[in-house]
Design a protein around this nucleic acid. Structure first.
Lengths: 137, 137
DNA sequence: CTAACTGCAAAGTTTTTGCAATTGC
DNA sequence: GCAATTGCAAAAACTTTGCAGTTAG
């Protein structure tokens, strides 16, 4: 599990590259896609390094992880709070803008006794494209 | 990815057992835990069967999957809508009761163009026990 | 300096799949 | 009967880790 340790994290060419890749895409890539992009610019970078940097960046709050189940994590370089929506047919993930966001963390902390650091709101449904296909069938 | 196909699903002793196990526990077990429980009553059941049945039950809407990232899925036999909260230190998952639930799916459908089937709201933070340990340190 | 980071490769964990036999409808 | 399901085992998919050398602060 994640630990709440406070080891200081260093910069490196590899880490900067990974951030740059994540910041410059609108999609929600998985670790392997990031690895493939990264090795275009840094052919010797290893997948292990990608994973280690993703963990470190998450811990530092520089990127966000989107657990989608199915044993696959996606990563998001957009730190502005937003929700995610995923198509149950094609697996595509889109953003839901912030405006639909009325729940206060204080409420949840009070009810549960947890100290809340973050939250994740995901919607599951059929995206516009798949609705079309499904309507035609 | 999940497909929205409509193959008809059959009952089997194994499937019934898996539902029964999920309905009778308050925790959020992973596939392997379910497998271990199941083989107590059905020693020859295989892990592959557990996975196949979990998928089929999710597709049928009989159980719910909780993606927690880290390549591990949890399953929930409680179909009443509720949110989940997870401790970032120990990984424990608890339920958040329904009352904290003001967002309308219609709003989200209108903004995104999706047809929404379900949603997932997860909070991340430190549970009461871990807060205690952390305060003592 | 030295603790964090790297590439590589091996191993770990979780999930899926091919197959021949079985079973539910 | 026929399609869905099963157990088994192998493979796939994803992630972590040990090690010895390198690098950032």
């Amino acid at each position: 599990m994640l630990s709440a340790d406070t080891k200081k994290t260093k910069n490196s060419k590899q880490k900067e590259l990974i951030i740059r890749i994540l910041r410059s895409t609108r999609c929600h890539p998985n670790a392997n896609w990031i690895f493939e992009q990264a090795r275009k610019q840094m052919p010797n970078i290893s997948l292990g390094t990608v994973y280690r940097n993703l963990s470190s960046l998450i811990k530092d709050g520089k990127i966000r992880e989107i657990g989608i189940g199915e044993g696959l994590n996606l990563y998001d370089g957009d730190l502005r709070y937003h929700d995610h929506i995923r198509c149950i047919v094609c697996g595509r993930v889109d953003d839901v803008p912030y405006l639909l966001q009325p729940i206060s963390m204080e409420q949840v902390e009070h009810v549960t006794g947890y100290e809340i650091h973050n939250r994740r709101l995901e919607f599951f449904g059929m995206c516009p494209d798949c609705r079309k296909v499904s309507a035609e069938a």
